[in-house]
């Protein structure tokens, strides 16, 4: 038999054997991981779907005097929008250190005293939710979870994907730079995925002019404990540590529920057919 035929036969035989060995190991590792497959949504997305949020927004429209949250200059956001946004835990007030508390109070005074007329029409528009707010988004907060031995993927309706690598550490600091979602790695503690996220872009959680939301540095460190608490519910205990700005770590507990009325992830997008326009200073549809 010619040598090249022997070599070809060896290659053909060795490939499948190697793949089989690899698959067996991987299947064994898969079998130790929790099954989080399916479509999930944030608590606010669930409230939106059930109509609960609509009710709260209608109520706010009927009784705007009851709205006390300070998020934007009075008159810029509709009472219904304030009712909606102020439900987000992550748009609360973090335990700032003295310097940032002073800054926060100054911004709050500015927001309260800025007349609505000073805000350019159309600038207050929620579009795009970055980390960590994507974990509490009412509109894009529908996601699928894919757990593999190498990483856990959170795939959001707006196309964003959180890659949480469980088989490697963060890259060396010199190979990291701030991004919208940061860099995430994880480790399993039983059925709880402990996620470590660094290098989120510095700045407020909502990047809209005149809008008041927590502001973190690029050194902020996010630790999440993600676990299933029942067949249809997950919980994410998120601890935000930012020594440059916070007096002590800020802990919020976010909840997710399994989506029963979607058979697949339907994409969301805020640009495809955005007919919102500002014409002669007035918001309208074109």
């Amino acid at each position: 038999m010619p040598t090249y035929l022997i070599a070809l036969a060896l290659v053909m035989l060795s490939g499948p054997v190697y793949a089989q060995t690899n698959n067996t190991e991987r299947i064994q590792r898969f079998s130790t991981l929790p099954n989080w497959s399916g479509i999930w949504e944030t608590e606010l997305s669930a409230q939106m779907d059930s109509g609960e949020l609509d009710q709260a927004m209608m109520e706010a429209t009927r009784h705007p005097e009851r709205i006390t949250a300070v998020l934007a200059p009075r008159g810029v956001l509709l009472p219904a929008e304030v009712a909606f946004l102020s439900r987000q835990q992550l748009i609360g007030e973090p335990p700032y250190n003295a310097e940032w508390e002073r800054r926060f109070q100054r911004l709050k005074r500015e927001v309260l005293t800025t007349p609505a007329s000073a805000v350019k029409a159309g600038t207050v528009k929620a579009c795009g939710w970055e980390f960590p707010l994507i974990m509490e988004s009412p509109t894009d907060g529908v996601f699928e979870v894919l757990v593999t031995p190498e990483q856990t993927l959170l795939l959001f309706a707006d196309g964003q994907a959180r890659h949480i690598y469980t088989d490697r550490p963060h890259p060396a600091p010199e190979n990291l730079w701030p991004t919208d979602l940061g860099d995430s790695v994880g480790r399993w503690e039983g059925d709880t995925l402990v996620i470590d996220t660094v290098q989120r872009k510095a700045g407020p959680l909502v990047r809209i002019p005149h809008f008041l939301s927590p502001d973190f540095s690029a050194e902020a460190h996010f630790t999440e404990r993600l676990r299933m608490v029942s067949a249809d519910a997950m919980e994410d205990q998120m601890t935000i540590d930012d020594p440059a700005r916070l007096e002590h770590p800020w802990v919020v507990t976010l909840r997710f529920r399994r989506v029963g009325n979607l058979d697949r992830l339907i994409p969301t997008d805020c640009t495809e057919n955005d007919r919102f326009r500002v014409v002669k200073g007035k918001e309208t549809i074109r």
Binding site: M48, D49, T139, V142, A157, V259, N261, L262, I266, P267, T268, R275, I285
Partner: peptide
């Protein structure tokens, strides 16, 4: 007339 509705995901769920 242009009548705005929810996004496809929200409508699909209903």
């Amino acid at each position: 007339w242009s009548i705005q509705m929810d996004n496809p995901q929200a409508l699909y769920r209903k």
